[in-house]
Amino acid sequence: MGHLLHMISNYERLVVFRLGKLTRAKGPGLVIILPCIDKISRVDLRMRAFSVPPQNLLTADGGGVEVGAEVFFRVKDPILCVTNVQDMDRSSRVIAQTALARFITSKDLSDLEIHKLEICQQVQTEINKMTLSWGVEVSKVQLSEVKVIQEPNPIMSGCNNPFNLLSQVLFPPGSSAPTPSAMPSFPFPTQNPPPSLSQTPAILPLSSAQPIDAADVKLMKCHTVEELIANVRPHLTPDLVRDIGCVYRFVEEGTVDEDKRVFYMDLKHGNGDIGEGEPPYGDWDATLTLSVDLLTRLLRQELSPFTAYMSGDLTVDGDLRAASQLGQLAEKMNK
């Protein structure tokens, strides 16, 4: 009888899968479970909290701060909490840490105290954009005491344009940019004549050239989905499938909702595959919304996934750990 009857408290729900199919969330009260047929997950609906450990961050005006946060949350939908995220606690912590870092680095040091409540609300809204799809709602974010570890740099204050910042660093106020006449001149070396034809290296005939494996060529820059698919496909190998083990669903950013280009990269089945449309096996680990140019830069190791996510150019829906493996994927593709 102990396996048949489960007592569910007012603050709990029991998500039941019968023969692998989701039924519904049951409770509170006495719930009957069929042994060997039903699989259950018990979900706690009470308010919980976790701490975002203090991070050393650089503010927009060049100041350095150490700041953390306390995040209060609860499960709003037990079914989504079980079916849409594998590790709710860890994923929520990663989202909170990333959102906090993004907003702190976009503010001046003086704003952290003046607009502290507003920043907390913005961080809360940013976290909820992701966690509500998991059935988790963040009700409050509270910043810890802001510890200043570096005073703001007056040169960087208000310099949102990197070219203006560079000009102020190279030519501070009171100085003038050098004129062409003040620039040192370097005569073109003419003492060494160009090599004669007899000195130029011989060109090997095509028959003696070594064959080039397409997988050994670095990924080219791509501007369309078709170019990306054609360039990535030769790089997919069974070793990548073994090491990555994820299916990615990509949505091209900047297109109309009714005509969004969707493509996939399957690194879980067979020898790996990439193509346009939905993943053929019907499931994926993460949906990434980004431009083709950004995905090309990620795969060419010109940009890290964390930087792209922090800047807001990359949106992730699903398993964040799978999305973070893009860096490992790019490293293996460019070996």
Rank of each mutant, 00 (worst) to 15 (best):
E252K: 12
N231T: 04
F17W: 02
W134E: 06
V138Y: 03
P238Y: 03
I79E: 15
G27F: 08
A69K: 09
S311A: 11
D243E: 14
G63V: 11
E12C: 01
V65L: 10
E331G: 13
K116W: 02
I114N: 08
E226L: 08
I229S: 03
F163C: 07
L299N: 13
P195V: 00
V94N: 03
Y248I: 03
P193W: 02
Y309A: 11
L298Y: 14
P194A: 09
G275Q: 12
P201W: 11
I155A: 14
D317T: 10
L112W: 14
A177S: 15
A60L: 15
N10V: 03
P305D: 10
N84C: 02
V31D: 00
A214W: 00
N161Y: 04
L166Q: 03
R90A: 11
S139N: 00
W134A: 00
A25D: 13
V292T: 10
S198I: 08
T105D: 04
R102S: 14
H235K: 15
P78I: 01
T131Y: 02
V251G: 00
I114G: 00
E66V: 15
L219H: 05
E227L: 03
D44A: 12
F163K: 07
I8F: 06
Y248H: 02
E12Y: 04
I119R: 00
R74C: 08
T131S: 14
E113D: 14
Q191R: 12
F250V: 05
P178F: 10
L14R: 01
P279E: 13
Q301A: 12
E278V: 12
L166W: 08
S106P: 00
L295K: 03
S139R: 05
H235T: 01
P189T: 10
S304E: 13
Q199P: 00
A177F: 13
L34C: 08
G277C: 10
G272K: 06
T179P: 04
K39Q: 12
K39W: 01
F263P: 01
R48K: 15
A182K: 14
H6P: 04
R249T: 00
R90F: 02
T307G: 05
P162L: 10
L228A: 08
Q301D: 12
R24I: 03
G312V: 06
G62Q: 11
V247Q: 01
Q86P: 07
P194H: 02
H6Y: 07
M310D: 09
M333N: 03
R48H: 15
K332E: 12
F17I: 01
S41W: 02
V316Y: 07
V16A: 04
V217K: 08
